[in-house]
């Protein structure tokens, strides 16, 4: 009984196993999936999702959400183009964009923790606001003439091999976020906040301040991804990254993070991202249409929310039955 329960409870281990399975099956069964060229594309495609998913995991673990990330990405992309047109050097622009992202995140954080507004409403609002500002900055146009050595680095691979340069960045950031979440007092406090903010407060955890900094981190990473996105496609546009927030939230939930907070692991989330990206990539190689891809993504997301619920209701039934048996005997 408890063994089954333990297995059902660790959804993230199921998702990791499933991801490995998909990768193996696709490598064997799908032509071109296992090639180094496809690997590079796969990593480049999942880069924005996985990077934004790191701080998003933290935020959802505390029971909040940040839906403005894609718009933050769009606004920093627009600003990058605007700064470039106005003659700033790329070395100045990149940190500046990350800083702007952090400030946009701080604004979200202030509204949520300072004014106590619900994060869902706040970040839907700033989702529209930041995207709107992106169009104010750059209009419908695009800025494309970024220096080759930077755009080339983002799309390039280490020594011209199979490992993309950005993978270093992804691994480094994922390691940092993973260690912080799973092996530091700060990470412990995030779970306590998400599961019971009042008890966390009574334990001396600074709930509001913690959440505020998570939004700053989320904005900063979104700003960084805005830069990477712009360099990858060599195009600063106001509509860059539209809809990315849904893919990110989908991957985080698929990775086993509870939307109510207090539960989930970073390895699970990474598996969720890879699973979604690999599945889409493999299906695309099989010439499956875009709509069908959306159907698969959507179905996976619904399943990821449904299955843990089914599991817990099975648990509850067992528990009741056991109580009845105990009462009868």
């Amino acid at each position: 009984m408890s063994e089954v329960r333990r297995r059902l409870a660790s959804w993230d281990s199921i998702i990791i196993a499933l991801t490995v399975l998909v990768l193996v099956v696709a490598s064997v069964g799908v032509p071109n999936f296992g090639t180094s060229r496809n690997f590079t594309f796969l990593v480049l495609d999942l880069m924005p999702i996985v990077l934004v998913a790191l701080p998003m995991t933290f935020i959802i673990v505390t029971g909040e959400i940040d839906l403005s990330v894609a718009s933050t990405l769009g606004l920093t992309s627009s600003l990058m183009g605007w700064f470039w047109n106005n003659g700033l050097s790329i070395e100045t622009i990149i940190p500046l964009c990350v800083l702007v992202g952090a400030m946009l995140g701080a604004f979200n954080g202030f509204l949520v923790t300072g004014l106590g507004l619900p994060s869902l409403a706040v970040t839907i609002g700033t989702l529209a606001l930041y995207r709107g500002l992106a169009f104010v900055v750059l209009g419908d146009g695009a800025v494309a003439d970024f220096p080759w050595n930077y755009t080339g680095w983002v799309t390039g691979t280490i020594g011209g091999g199979a490992v993309p340069n950005v993978l270093i960045l992804i691994v480094a950031l994922a390691l940092i976020f993973g260690v912080v979440l799973h092996a530091t007092p700060f990470g412990r406090s995030l779970y306590a906040i998400g599961a019971n903010a009042q008890a966390a407060h009574f334990s001396g955890i600074r709930v509001a301040r913690t959440k505020f900094w998570l939004y700053v981190a989320s904005g900063a990473i979104a700003g960084l991804v805005g830069v990477l996105w712009t360099l990858r496609y060599s195009s600063a546009r106001a509509d860059n990254g539209s809809g990315l927030e849904l893919a990110v939230v989908a991957a985080v939930l698929l990775g086993g993070v509870s939307i109510f907070g207090g539960r989930g692991t970073l390895p699970g989330v990474l598996a969720g991202v890879v699973l979604l990206a690999a599945l889409q990539n493999a299906l695309r190689l099989q010439d499956v249409s875009g709509q069908a891809l959306n159907i698969v993504t959507g179905a996976l997301l619904v399943l990821s929310v449904l299955l843990p619920n089914v599991a817990s209701s099975i648990r509850a039934t067992w528990h009741r039955r056991r109580l009845r048996q105990a009462a009868a005997s």
Partner: peptide, 8 residues
């Protein structure tokens, strides 16, 4: 509500 985080 205040003393413990029940799920942890």
């Amino acid at each position: 509500q205040q003393g413990l985080v029940m799920e942890l």
